[in-house]
Write a protein that binds this DNA or RNA. Structure first.
Length: 477
RNA sequence: GGCCUCAUGGUCAAGAGGUUAAGACGUUGCCCUCUCAAGGCAAAAUCAGGGGUUCAAUUCCCCUUGGGGCUACCA
């Protein structure tokens, strides 16, 4: 059996959409699982849609995700060029050949005539008028410089069928298909033509793409057959939805790889989550590295129905990746977000990072979670009043001075030292340590809930700041 | 409208004629605990509807309903 070869063929739209990323991932996984090659091809035949810098976005997203391609515009290969706009002559040659084979024909119809073909329901189907033109007439018109397109010549009757590895047998009547444009009047091919030529020329054995092509694949098969080429194996993938009725949109930037990275999602979490949307490994494992995915990937685990993108679960997964990181690793990925926070440059980020590692799911939550450390607002004394903790303002009036006295004498301001020493104070006051810590924490932060306990925060604040805050809290009582 | 296609809890999903219908996220409760997280335990919650086939249907077939896609000189 020939070596498996798959491809990812995005258009340079300027974004790496997560739906596209998943298609790329599956194509990569399938190739690698089977010891094959994965190629990147840029489909930029629509120059109106071209976006500056879009190529770099594709390259960097793929590289960051770890989807290394064996052939592509920036890495080379034996079947280039890998950018469709650079393959114009190739398409022209094969289009001409297809015309000779009877699989396509020149069409000179004007836009106006095409529009006049629209029926009362707003539907339109080309009537093959130009197919009647003789070879001489066609040559004359071309010589006269009349603009033309090349259309695919689809049989008017009969049924075509093919096997999709996910969806099974797909049957479509030729009558339901149209004589689509293969070569546009500007000489560029449409997707309908370019994908067939390129997939064949580049030796793609398995075509993996979205279900939007499920019902147009018979048209492509017609061309493979006309050229006498072997048809590739088809694997169509269900759509990723934003909700029950809308698919994850390319617009509004709500589903782009870069946006998620900027929001503080980890690339491995994104890849992992996206892999799970529409695929379930045999062993039901949810958290996987790319290498594990390659190992576990199999087509039978791919579902046929569209799945809804659930960012709540993505957040959870991201949190899992965060929690399993070492303190050093976490600090590294978290630092850019600490730089945006009020504690940056004032307090020991290393200690704070340790405290919040298990309390953030995405990195962008960091500033809002830690800013309180630097900004101690005036304390609402009612916070001392807590029935469940059995604390009150009256109690605060005795606890805070006692803490101040004790803290003055403590040299080792580490969490454990503080905890032990202050527990003794609680005993002396004949209250539960729980009560003391509640009051202390409020006095130190002015917040009802904080990530971290009183002594952990005290350690970060340091002796001087602690005493300042406690004195302020006391005079505020 | 025509054609293609899909349908298990709120979400992702396992299942592939006989199961107490997994698991995960989320939700709720309890435990742990210097608050909150994390962690541990537990609970609630699903086979869209209707016909068949069969001793037996979530599972096979048909219809309905609902969703998605295609129907461009976009991919």
């Amino acid at each position: 059996m020939a070596k498996v070869k798959t491809r990812f063929a995005p258009s340079p739209t300027g974004f790496m959409h997560l739906g596209g990323l998943r298609t790329a991932l599956y194509a990569y996984l399938y190739a690698k699982h089977n010891g094959g090659d994965f190629v990147l091809r840029i489909e930029d035949t629509d120059k109106e849609r071209f976006v500056e810098g879009a190529l770099e976005v594709i390259y960097s997203s793929l590289n960051e995700s770890g989807l290394k391609y064996d052939e592509g515009p920036d890495v080379g290969g034996n079947y280039g060029p890998y950018v469709q706009s650079e393959r114009k002559e190739i398409y022209a040659k094969y289009a001409k050949e297809l015309v000779e084979l009877g699989g396509a024909y020149y069409c000179f119809c004007s836009k106006e005539r095409l529009e006049s073909l629209t029926d009362e329901n707003g539907n339109r189907k080309y009537d093959k008028l130009c197919l009647k033109l003789s070879k001489e007439e066609v040559e004359q018109k071309i010589k006269n410089g009349e603009p033309y397109v090349i259309r695919q010549n689809i049989p008017t009757e009969g049924t075509s069928s093919y096997e999709d590895l996910i969806y099974g047998t797909i049957e479509v009547d030729y009558n339901d298909l149209e004589d689509n444009v293969l070569i546009k009047s500007d000489g560029m091919p449409t997707y309908n033509f370019a994908n067939v030529i390129d997939d064949h020329l580049m030796g793609i054995t398995h075509v993996i793409r979205g279900t939007e092509y499920l019902s147009s694949t018979p048209k492509y098969n017609l061309m493979y057959d006309a050229f006498g080429w072997e048809r590739p194996v088809y694997i169509h993938l269900p759509t990723i939805m934003k909700d029950a009725t809308r698919k994850l949109s390319k617009r509004y930037g709500d589903a782009n790889f870069d946006d998620f990275i900027n929001k503080g999602y980890l690339k491995q979490a994104i890849i992992n989550y996206v892999a799970l949307l529409g695929w379930c490994p045999k062993n039901n494992q949810e958290k996987m590295t790319l290498a594990e995915m390659v190992d576990l990937f199999d087509l039978t685990g791919i579902s046929k129905s569209p799945s809804i993108f659930d960012d709540v679960k993505l957040r959870w997964l991201n949190g899992e990746y965060l929690k399993e990181m070492s303190d050093e690793e976490f600090l590294e990925v978290a630092t850019p977000f600490f730089e945006k926070s009020a504690v940056y440059g004032k307090y020991d980020i290393k200690k704070i990072a340790k405290l919040i590692k298990s309390r953030v799911e995405i990195l962008s939550e960091i500033p809002e979670k830690v800013d309180f450390i630097a900004n101690c607002a005036t304390i609402d004394n009612n916070l001392y009043e807590n029935q469940k903790q059995k604390t009150s303002i009256e109690l605060a009036k005795v606890v805070i001075p006692a803490c101040i006295e004790k803290l003055k004498d403590i040299e080792d301001f580490s969490n454990s030292s503080l905890f032990e020493n202050l527990a003794v104070v609680a005993t002396e006051l004949e209250i539960k340590s729980k009560q003391l810590f509640w009051i202390l924490r409020i006095a130190l932060t002015g917040m009802l809930v904080t990530p971290g306990g009183a002594t952990e925060i005290a350690e970060i604040l340091g002796k001087e700041e602690c005493l300042n805050r406690l004195n302020n809290a006391l005079s505020n009582l």
